[in-house]
Design a protein around this nucleic acid. Structure first.
Length: 276
DNA sequence: ATGGCTGGTAGAACCAGA
């Protein structure tokens, strides 16, 4: 049972809450640009993926100095790892293992009695869309399948954000034709994501604010000589909400300039503002 | 059609990313 929590707001008052998600590709290596982002944009909550650090070595001090005193971690050595960093209290931390292999790819919390916040790092899925048992692609589909079962049982207002590693719309990739058989944009992945989305009528907030006809990316490969000119991006990072939170969302921004900061991640931060 | 780059950890002719 969830224990009762102090309300975030007084009756009749609205509270603005800005929630960010960012695949940081090593929080220790990139702590300088994380701090810069928090100073420049000051979200109330930051969800990180690919922190690449065990919990004991997570750079909590850097966040506490900036007023982020509430931290929920799920890390492991070397790879993966997720974290929720917050100015407001976090409760009832959970960590699901949707790949059933012990990898640290999810952490969830309850925020001030108002809603649950679920931060996920879906597996990339390997080089090729190969269905053989134990392939990375198979594992990715299994992961989304277990998320789907989890989603069916939800009964609270929920924000689901993170690096989904799937770009569902044709305008979510630089070339639908050229990526149709590339992992992240295959029909079978999109079908699995659609199925997950249908279980709780999840709303894809980015596409509420940026029309689906408009190309929108959150990731550009390190391998391009000039990522901005070639612009071979994909929209892999998402902010979904259950329908009860849809009319609380007032903006959604994709912070593209961050891709040009020093020692950048290949993903950029996304930020949604809520009025609760 | 291919390869291009990145960080962590071990000390790799690695792994994982996507």
């Amino acid at each position: 049972m969830l224990r009762p929590l102090p309300p975030l707001k007084h009756p009749g008052m609205t509270t603005t809450l800005r929630i960010a998600s960012w695949n940081i590709n090593s929080v220790r290596f990139r702590i300088d640009i994380v701090e810069r982002f928090l100073r420049d944009h000051g979200p109330d909550i930051l969800c990180l993926q690919e922190t690449k650090v065990v919990d004991e070595q997570f750079p909590e001090g850097a966040f506490r100095q900036l007023g982020y005193n509430h931290i929920a971690l799920n890390g492991q050595p070397m790879h993966h790892g997720v974290a929720i960093i917050s100015k407001v209290p976090l409760h009832n931390r959970t960590a699901e293992d949707w790949q059933a292999n012990g990898e640290a790819r999810h952490v969830g919390v309850e925020v001030a009695g108002s809603f649950r916040l679920e931060n996920v790092y879906v597996p990339a899925g390997g080089e090729a869309p190969d269905f053989t048992d134990g392939s990375k692609f198979r594992q990715k589909l299994d992961f989304v399948g277990r998320m789907t079962e989890w989603s069916r049982a939800l009964n609270k207002p929920t924000i689901l954000t993170g690096d989904f590693n799937i770009a569902p719309l044709e305008t979510d990739v630089w070339s639908h034709k050229q990526l149709v058989n590339v992992v992240s944009h295959t029909a079978v992945e999109i079908e699995a994501l659609d199925k997950l989305q249908a279980t709780a009528n999840w709303v894809d907030l980015a596409r509420q604010f940026i029309p689906p006809e408009e190309p929108l990316f959150t990731w550009w490969s390190y391998r391009a000589q000039d990522w901005e000119t070639s612009n071979r991006g994909r929209r892999l990072d998402h902010m979904w909400v259950t329908p009860d939170l849809l009319d609380k969302a007032v903006s959604h921004v994709v912070h593209k300039p961050v891709r040009n900061w020093g020692k950048p991640s290949d993903h950029i931060p996304i930020v949604t503002e809520f009025r609760l």
